[in-house]
Design a protein around this nucleic acid. Structure first.
Lengths: 210, 210
DNA sequence: CTTTACAAATGACATTTGTCATCCGGGAGT
DNA sequence: ACTCCCGGATGACAAATGTCATTTGTAAAG
């Protein structure tokens, strides 16, 4: 609990969230090697992460997107709403423009891919701590690529359809009529230029619209 | 290039392969913290990995499964064929019994999940280096769980169907008649206890049968 | 030379999907 | 009050999908 009594005391405090324990530990190890950064807490899911950030008030919060309980984007949005001073850096596998947009809307200061060399993480933490924005170059360019044409309903319906559920089941799950579900699906299919529900779901997923 | 002039000189030499640069670096950092382990090379894809192992003859080779060029399983199989003395540890996201089976057939000595706590990695390396086998507990139990009931045809057809292709397209792509495709699909669906092609594909995928 | 076995195809049928035009019941405007 | 719009629901119809029983080659086993 006592703050790392290292050089000068002015280390950057960070909290990390990542659902794969091994990766979480490894990233933490990576950051701990840097003299000017201390990992004050780790979390294996979104809810835990949110609590950890609120409890520790770190300078920077590093988080994955796809996690149990709450996604990294949801946590970021919540932190923005609560006006904590903590800066958020998203670290994810997915180069999806939809994710980046949502991340920025949720007030994230950084968005970088797990593809990048490891050194960039510590760099990003420092830059973001200074108040700068760090966006992965690959995304930065085409970032503002076409925006999500789907309505909320279409999204929900498409999500379930993509898992192989039948129209009737989906209807039951969402409290709609089967016909209505088919209508939404039909709309989504045409908006995405797909040939059927499955392809539509696939397309939406790769764009990060889910 | 000079071997780490640490305590005693008898460190375990390892090569790591993982396609996500950030994770690769982090895992390396994690292992480097252990006094008795040295990371002598890193690789970002399968081919690179194979070369690195052949060039360095490490004690242990740690690898992800899903990588560009060559999968970790393929590299493992090749190393077995070449009778190098290097022990292989698979580290992956997927708890699929199909993968585990293939890993063991390819002569891997370890199979662990990225879900597990980070400490287990170094442990696994040490155990494997001693000649022991390390299988993730979650998989170890049901490991020999039900073997793939699908025929090759069913697999092919299911793969395409899972991407949203229609029966007709699949037929064209495989040089079969549409009716036949539907028959295979129907068979696969019943074998897997699914309700339709999409669910069947999903189930097969999670079992590692693809 | 049979028998058996299996991959592939056919045909027929019920069900599910995808499409479209239309209808209903509230708001929100003006 | 009276439109106009929008989420949702209906109904109808064509197309795609899932199921089965049956048939045809063909290759291995006897």
């Amino acid at each position: 609990m006592t703050p790392n009594p290292k050089s000068g005391r002015k280390t950057i405090q960070v909290v990390i969230a990542e659902d794969q324990g091994m990766v979480l530990g490894a990233l933490a190890a990576l950051l701990e090697m840097e003299g000017d950064i201390s990992v004050v807490a780790r979390a294996l899911d979104g809810r835990e992460a949110l609590d950890a950030v609120l409890a520790n008030k770190p300078d920077v919060f590093i988080t994955d997107i796809e996690m149990p309980k709450m996604t990294g984007l949801e946590v970021a949005a919540e932190l923005k709403r609560l006006r904590t001073g903590t800066r958020v850096v998203i670290v994810t596998t997915f180069a999806r423009s939809g994710y980046l947009r949502r991340a920025l809307e949720a007030g994230a200061s950084g968005y970088l891919l797990k593809d990048r060399p490891a050194e960039e993480l510590a760099d990003a933490v420092r830059r973001v701590h200074k108040g700068l924005r760090v966006i992965d170059p690959e995304l930065a360019t085409e970032a503002w690529g076409e925006l999500d044409p789907l309505t909320d309903r279409e999204r929900q319906v498409l999500r379930l359809a993509g898992d192989g559920k039948a129209s009737g089941d989906i209807a039951g799950e969402l409290g709609l009529s089967e016909g209505t579900v088919r209508n939404y699906l039909s709309e989504a299919i045409s908006k995405l230029g797909a040939g059927n529900r499955v392809e539509a779901a696939r397309i939406a997923r790769t764009k990060g619209w889910l």
